[in-house]
């Protein structure tokens, strides 16, 4: 298989040694079918065992290996050397504090995932044990795309709104809330509305749309947020005009 020498420029930061991040150059002989993650693994195994980064599945599903590749938030297992002529620059995901090298601090987004109550909330009793809900294929299709999020957090890294003010709940967590709102088994929409329509919720989004463009799983959080704005506005007027609460 053909080998290409790639100049890899990797951001390094060890808080016990460095005041601020810096770039280290590595020359990596890459096979033509390699992803950037393979190049990083080559560095780790052969050139520099001190490089820190997260990875696991190498099949676009665990969400560990989100990083900036040439300035773009990317899953490094899904970003191929063949598509990147010239030098490749790898940095930790933007908009997050850097813990070490390519590892970022995710505490904030983990709390946000928690905050939006991403689980089935029922007002009525669920079916008895062993009896499933009926859910038409159409009802499943309504939210299916939103279940594809792997929490790689590339969307937060692309979102300038979150970068400027990290009180914003942000793309993945809002899309997750919408996923449950749209699920025919859930009855928690109005309960979540208080969080989602609050100051740091959907209205903080100015629809830059970058989150959806970088999403490696085509979840389209930007669309979800706009839909939630419409939902929120409708709900507001329904309540103002005294209609019964629009529960899905």
């Amino acid at each position: 298989m053909e080998i290409r020498q790639i100049e890899l420029e990797v951001m390094r930061y060890d808080p016990e040694k460095d005041k601020q991040p810096w770039f280290q150059q590595y020359t990596v002989p890459c096979q033509e079918d390699w992803a950037i993650l393979d190049a990083l693994n080559y560095v780790k195994d052969n050139l520099d065992t001190t490089l820190a980064y997260r990875w696991s599945c190498h099949m676009m599903v665990c969400g560990s290996c989100g990083m900036m590749v040439n300035g773009e938030p990317s899953l490094t297992c899904k970003t191929f050397v063949r598509d990147l002529p010239g030098k490749v620059r790898v940095e930790p995901l933007e908009n997050f504090p850097i813990e070490r090298d390519l590892v970022v601090v995710l505490d904030d987004v983990m709390q946000k995932l928690h905050k939006v109550q991403p689980y089935i909330i029922r007002k009525d009793d669920p079916p008895p044990e062993g009896v499933e809900y009926t859910q038409s294929r159409g009802a499943l299709a309504k939210f299916k795309q939103l279940t594809m999020c792997i929490n790689c957090m590339c969307c937060y890294s692309a979102c300038p709104q979150y970068g400027l003010d990290n009180n914003f709940i942000g793309p993945a967590a809002l899309a997750l809330a919408h996923r449950y709102n749209l699920d025919s088994r859930d009855q928690g929409k109005s309960q979540r509305l208080d969080i989602l329509a609050d100051h740091d919720g959907v209205w903080d989004c100015s629809f830059v749309g970058a989150c959806s463009e970088v999403c490696p799983k085509h979840v389209d959080p930007a669309a979800a947020i706009q839909q939630m704005k419409i939902d929120g506005a409708l709900e507001f007027w329904k309540q103002k005009l005294g209609f019964p609460g629009g529960e899905s």
Binding site: I120, G130, E132, Y133, T134, S136, R137, K144, R185, D186
Partner: peptide
């Protein structure tokens, strides 16, 4: 086994569905 899989369904697992809406 079936009981546990239905339990997951109650928790929101997006199982693929048949025409009639069952898993």
């Amino acid at each position: 086994a079936p009981r546990e899989l239905v339990q997951l369904e109650h928790w929101g697992c997006p199982w693929s569905r048949d025409e009639d809406g069952s898993v």
